[in-house]
Amino acid sequence: MNKPAIDVAYVAELARLELTDEEKAVFQPQLEDIVRYVEKISSVDVEGVPPTMHGRAIVNALREDEVRPSMPREEALANAPARTGDEFMLPKIVEGAES
């Protein structure tokens, strides 16, 4: 295989995981092994087989548009590391920088 099956540094960055160079060096071959192992499944011929989106063959688990009570605000905010008024506090964010 020419291209590594996985780029650990990139994946770690996407997952917001801070890895040291030593850790990256250890995980890179380990995760490559895992991905290659899973890739064996690609050798199966699935021509014409629709992808399975869910482990159970049920559809249409829908709910009616009926209001249910929400939780008390104090309970909702109880685990907030910090709050600002009645909101979850964040460090100051530059407005409009949303993704």
Partner: peptide
Amino acid sequence: GCLLKTGCEPNTNVCPVCLGYPGALPMINK
């Protein structure tokens, strides 16, 4: 099933699903 309404006090129409609590299960609004 949290109420959708503008102008409410902050964080009053919330529940484990829309607060993203681990394990809370979403259900599609028909």
